[in-house]
Design a protein around this nucleic acid. Structure first.
Lengths: 168, 168
DNA sequence: GAGCTTATCACCAATCATTGTTGTTTGACA
DNA sequence: TGTCAAACAACAATGATTGGTGATAAGCTC
């Protein structure tokens, strides 16, 4: 396994602590715990997944606190809140490098795709009055775990890998 | 206004009626009403928007029936159910021509973008075990109505143009 | 270190989109 | 026309997320 892959572009817990304080926010044990959960997390966890991970450290932390902290981090631009059609918001600590996403249709697993697509813009005669300032590409398919015959394909991997909705 | 734009690639009400019957489904007044609402609709309505439009014809129709019929149409491949991050599913009667979408960050309005992007695929060394079988591009920005100073930018146009969630 | 102020907290209850349940109605075919 | 399952309307319920409230504690001042 390439352990190096975990060194994704994201501030450290200490840097986030500093950024929080600098913006007039208070730094609590709960928030630092959430910072730690996010640090180096490459799984695009849902709020619930962050909550579960955080609770192993701070048992009394509430889901509301997790949501609030995550959206504050998103507001500060330290993480990205994504809606990838998996039925719940996913949070991506990687905001430094522009990238796209691979989403599993079966379990909802998300992976970064650090590829730049040239020519990904709206032709002038097609803008239909929109002022476009962003483009996201989502590739869908089946992840390795859901593709192969496995004991329980619904739960290929446990922690930090929340399942997506399987509508239709 | 280009009235021709309304002749989007979609089956007529009669064709949908026939397709429904052919697949063993029953055709009711409620369903035909929904077919009519969708026919030529270029606004990517939400279930709620279809519901509202349908109710002007069949006052007693229930939201559940609308959801059920829309997802059956999606299952049959006659329309597409989209999750574009606006907080609710949007339905696109245009399934014939491959296209992408323009989404307004403010009001959630969606427009088709009939453009083909070359090279929109995952490089082999980046697939990370996924079996990819689909790619969607979403361009985000502000639509004409939300961009310009207007009396009530939250409701630029009324019918069939449901607002998106404005999280964060 | 104590006191103060205010953000943040935990614990609810509430919301919104969507889905499950149930008893009734109705299309499709005999 | 009769039969019967599919589809219906009218609920209640779900899951993700947010709002309200009184208690707590971070970060300042002294």
């Amino acid at each position: 396994m390439i352990g190096d892959k975990l060194s994704i572009a994201m501030r450290t817990t200490d840097e986030l602590t500093e950024a929080f304080r600098a913006s007039g926010r208070k730094v609590t044990a709960q928030r630092q715990c959430i910072f730690r959960v996010l640090q180096g997390n490459v799984n695009h966890p849902s709020a619930e997944a962050v909550y579960d991970a955080a609770r192993t450290e701070v048992e009394t932390i509430s889901l509301k606190t997790v949501y609030q902290t995550l959206y504050e981090l998103a507001e500060m631009g330290e993480i990205a809140a994504l809606d990838l059609g998996t039925g719940m918001a996913r949070f991506d600590p990687n905001v430094e490098e522009t990238h796209h996403h691979l989403v599993c249709r079966s379990c909802g697993k998300v992976r970064d795709l650090t590829v730049t697509f040239d020519g990904l813009s709206v032709p002038p005669d097609e803008v239909q009055g929109y002022e476009v300032n962003g483009a996201e590409v989502v590739f869908r398919g089946l992840c390795e775990d859901c593709r192969l015959p496995r004991p329980d394909p619904q739960h290929p991997s446990a922690a930090m890998e929340p399942a997506g909705t399987t509508r239709s």
